[in-house]
C-alpha cells in the first residue's frame, strides 16, 4: 500500500492534468482551480516549514560554533527584524513609510540590485572566454556575436546602416530555427518524462 497509494495519486492527477488541457468544461476547470488553490495552501504551509528549518539549522550552527557561525547570527537577526517590522503594524506594514517598507526599499532592494548588477561583470568574463576563435565553430559564433552587437548599438548604425537588418536576419532565421529545434525536443522529452512518472516507471523518489 505504501507504494500503490502514491502511484495511484500520481496516475490520477497526471491524467487529470492532461484532461484539463483539452476539456474547457466548467466542472473540470473548477476542479482544476480547486487543486490549484490546495497547492497554494500547501505552499503557504511550507513557507512556515522553511522558516522553521532555516532557524533550526542556523541555530544549531551557532550552538555548536561551527565554521563561520557568525554569519548565522546575522541571518537570524535579520530574519527577526524583518518579521517584527512586518507583523508590528499588521496590514499597515505595507504602507509607504512603514518600518517594513523602509527596510525593504533601503536594505533588501539595494542588496538584490547589487547581486543582479554583478551580472554585467560575469557577462564580460564569460564573453571573453566564449569569443576566443579557437576553431571554425567558435569563429562563426564570434562573427555572429559581433554582428548582433553592432546591430544593437548606435555606433553600429553609424558605421553601416545595414547592421540592424543583419542582426534581425540572424535572430529571426538561424537563431529562431535553433531555438525551435531545442523547444521541440524539450516538449517531447517532457511528454516522455511525464509518461514515465504517470505510469510509475520513474519513481526515484520512493523505494
Amino acid at each position: 500500500m505504501r507504494l500503490q497509494i502514491p502511484l495511484a495519486i500520481i496516475l490520477i492527477m497526471g491524467l487529470f492534468t492532461i484532461v484539463t488541457s483539452f476539456v474547457p468544461a466548467k466542472p473540470i476547470a473548477d476542479l482544476n482551480q480547486t487543486f490549484r488553490n490546495w497547492y497554494i495552501g500547501i505552499i503557504t504551509f511550507f513557507i512556515f516549514l522553511g522558516t522553521f528549518n532555516l532557524v533550526r539549522v542556523n541555530g544549531e550552527r551557532i550552538k555548536t560554533k561551527a565554521r563561520d557561525w557568525q554569519y548565522s547570527i546575522i541571518l537570524i537577526a535579520a530574519l527577526g527584524v524583518m518579521l517584527f517590522a512586518g507583523f508590528f503594524k499588521g496590514r499597515a506594514s505595507l504602507d509607504e513609510g512603514s518600518p517594513f517598507m523602509y527596510l525593504y526599499f533601503n536594505v533588501q532592494f539595494p542588496l538584490e540590485a547589487t547581486m543582479y548588477s554583478l551580472l554585467a561583470f560575469f557577462v564580460t568574463s564569460a564573453s571573453f572566454r566564449a569569443f576566443r576563435a579557437r576553431n571554425t565553430q567558435a569563429l562563426v559564433l564570434l562573427l555572429a556575436a559581433v554582428l548582433i552587437m553592432l546591430g544593437r548599438v548606435p555606433v553600429g548604425t553609424s558605421i553601416w546602416k545595414g547592421f540592424p537588418d543583419v542582426t534581425e536576419w540572424i535572430m529571426s532565421y538561424p537563431n529562431a530555427a535553433a531555438k525551435r529545434g531545442i523547444r521541440l525536443g524539450i516538449d517531447l522529452g517532457l511528454i516522455s518524462m511525464a509518461l514515465r512518472m504517470i505510469l510509475g516507471i520513474e519513481r526515484s523518489y520512493m523505494q
Binding site: G189, M193, I201
Partner: peptide, 21 residues
C-alpha cells in the same frame, strides 16, 4: 541541453524500460 535534462534521470538509472521510453 533541453530534452537531455528530462532524459538524464532515465539514462542514468540504466533501467532498460526507462531507456525504452
Amino acid at each position: 541541453i533541453g530534452e537531455e535534462l528530462y532524459a538524464a534521470g532515465a539514462s542514468l538509472s540504466g533501467d532498460p524500460i526507462q531507456m525504452g521510453s
